[in-house]
Write a protein that binds this DNA or RNA. Structure first.
Length: 582
RNA sequence: GCGCCCGUAGCUUAACCGGACAGAGCAUCGGCCUUCUAAGCCGAGGGUUGCAGGUUCAAAUCCUGCCGGGCGCGCCA
């Protein structure tokens, strides 16, 4: 309907142009919006206000001229010039009821469109180091990315979801050593576990599994080697950890060290996979950082940069001249000790993404990575790819509160609430809904006490309850009147204000999905569902569905049948269940 | 110090990417269950959109400067 009105307006403008009332060379961008207020009709357009600037004509006067030139239309009953020069369109009562038939016919498909049907888009999210279980901070990125994926799919994109496993580098070495030390303790050794190693209980679990599988194969009595390390290292703990890593590699040898490392990373990765699966978050691919290095992809990406003349050597390190591409300073790719940096892997990884033929790339990162955007973009540009095809979304942190106190969340300290615990406490549906309720650049305060003790107040129940109520009405309708109540129902009987409001809302669902997908804004769907549930609950209290009048009853069943489908489709976008009973 | 994000009712927030009197929820107060689920509905109070300028017919939205909060600024990942 909106595009239809736009067409009417365009025709009016070109009519005025041939009349000579408007200059022929003006740029017309017609923008029709739904009126917020019913007093302003059904649709509104600010065209005259925009054109008055370009033409120098008074806006109201111009609006009158446009209105007079709009072609006759069966649906438009009145065009009014209002305020400073708005054109308000009033439409025939009941013009939207056709949407009910459309919903009941297309069912699951209602809300999906084919707007972007040929574009392949890759969305990379979560991508947490496999050094520990996912915590509630990761949950937001997971829920957000999964929902974005659903939205993009709904508007026709070919979506590929990927998790980048940072399974290489120093953090993994620290994890390996942490597991090995716990393992030694299980073998009966006595040692001081470093404060800056991974403290969490899960490290014990990983070590225990290692011990079950390999027995004492990796045991080296501490008295034989412990004294060789610089004394307990309160001077420099990080150096102490590095020394431990070296010592472990020396004692275990490459093969055994890698066995321990792989055991640790595999165990934790599979735990992460299970966890995400239960959270309703699926990936098409898990891309290993280690595999980049193993396949020489890092080396060849660096060679490509060097060939194009964007690198240089300084102080024994290899640098990328990212400042030539808008970054604030140059970045190190290969350190003086010969090791490549995390950034080097990321350059190779993003190059690889482009090579895989995606039209668009979306990265969802935690807000703490914002300083990273410029250098990744720089690398993409330097390698001859179009940086505009990469969209980076920064998701602000979710702060967790309990007892009014903010919880610190650090994987190394072991002080964190896992995603698994959260899911068990508040449930998958509530957690998923809560995580995407706010726009991603807004900080999210997650009050655990509130979520656990007052689950009744959680808005997800409000929406789910609307769905359950509808299901209940249908089951009673079937009991009293038999099935197939929807056949031949006449939606024109829906004349109550609450019924009209509902039809209008249902009619908006597809455009809201498109908008949410364009903006990568799941909260738009959340708000829509709350509005729809609210309109339904109001209707439910004002109008009886199962009335004696069979015609009216049929019309109302048709209406709530459509609502049921839209609630279900909307909740499905969020991976939230639509229960039949509550 | 420099850079990015944010500041809206007591609290948590929305506002269709410049539009009409800034909408909700929680909390507070007052009503509604012998009719389809009261996890609901109806009503009331509560706002100088952090502050000060600027652009515009029109600013929560755009620009400038302050104030306040978060995050980042490694040959860490």
């Amino acid at each position: 309907m909106r595009t239809h009105i736009s067409e009417l307006l365009i025709s009016a403008v070109s009519g005025l142009q041939t009349d000579g009332d408007l200059p022929a060379d003006i740029n017309v961008e017609v923008c029709v919006t739904r009126s917020k207020d019913k007093a302003h009709g059904d649709f509104a357009c600010n065209l005259a206000l925009q054109l008055s600037k370009a033409t120098g004509m008074a806006a109201r006067q111009l609006a009158e001229k446009i209105a007079a030139r709009v072609p006759e239309d069966a649906t438009v009953t009145k065009i009014e010039v209002a305020g400073p020069g708005f054109l308000n369109f009033y439409l025939r009562v009941g013009y939207q009821v056709e949407v009910l038939n459309q919903i009941l016919e297309t069912r699951d498909g209602f809300g999906t469109t084919r707007e972007y049907s040929n574009d392949k888009v890759q969305i990379e999210f979560v991508s947490a180091n496999p050094t520990g279980p996912l915590h509630v901070g990761h949950g937001r990125g997971a829920a957000y990315g999964a929902t974005i994926g659903n939205l993009l799919e709904a508007v026709g994109y070919n979506v590929h979801r990927e998790y980048y496993m940072n399974d290489a580098g120093r953090q993994m070495d620290i994890l390996t050593v942490s597991v090995w030390l716990r393992y030694l303790e299980l073998c009966g050794e006595t040692l001081t576990f470093p404060d800056n190693a991974y403290q969490g209980d899960y490290v014990w679990d990983v070590a225990a599994a290692l011990h079950r599988q390999y027995g004492n194969q990796f045991n080296y009595p501490v008295p034989l080697w412990g004294s060789q390390l610089s004394s307990d290292g309160d001077a420099d703990q990080e150096a102490y950890i590095d020394a431990l890593i070296d010592k472990a590699q020396e004692l275990l040898g490459e093969n055994d060290y890698n066995l321990v490392a792989k055991h640790a990373s595999d165990t934790i990765s599979s735990d992460i996979k299970d966890d995400l699966e239960l959270f309703g978050v699926r990936f098409d691919n898990w891309y290993s950082e280690r595999s980049l290095a193993n396949n020489d992809k890092v080396r060849s990406a660096l060679d490509a940069l060097t060939r194009k003349g964007h690198t240089y050597n300084k102080d024994g390190a290899l640098w990328f001249r990212s400042s030539a591409f808008g970054d604030e300073k140059d970045r190190v790719l290969v350190r003086g000790n010969g090791q490549t940096t995390y950034f080097a892997s990321d350059v190779a990884y993003h190059l690889e993404k482009f090579r895989r033929g995606f039209d668009q790339l979306i990265d969802i990162w935690g807000a703490d990575h914002h300083g990273y955007i410029a250098r990744v973009r720089a690398a993409i540009e330097a390698l001859g790819e179009d940086p505009k095809r990469l969209r980076v979304l920064l998701v602000q942190f979710a702060n967790l509160y309990t007892g009014g106190k903010k919880l610190a969340m650090s994987t190394r300290s072991g002080e964190f609430v896992t995603l698994r615990q959260l899911r068990k406490q508040v449930g998958k549906d509530a957690a998923r809904f809560f995580y995407v309720m706010r726009k991603c650049e807004q900080h999210l305060d997650f009050d655990l006490d509130l979520a656990t003790s007052q689950t009744q107040d959680n808005p997800v129940y409000y929406v789910q309850y609307a769905h359950a109520r509808i299901c209940s009405v249908f089951s009673q309708a079937a009991n009293r009147y038999g099935k197939n109540q929807l056949v031949d129902a006449d939606a024109a009987l829906l004349t109550q204000e609450q019924e009209q409001d509902l039809v209008t809302l249902l009619d908006q669902f597809p455009e809201r999905v498109v908008y949410a997908a364009d903006q990568l804004a799941p909260h738009v769907i959340v708000n829509y569902l709350r509005d729809l549930a609210n309109a339904f609950h109001s209707f439910y209290n004002a109008c009886q569905v199962l009335v004696d009048d069979a015609a009216l009853r049929g019309a109302r069943l048709k209406l709530i049948g459509a609502i049921q489908i839209v609630l279900r489709n909307g909740l499905a976008l969020l991976n939230v269940n639509a229960p039949e009973h509550m």
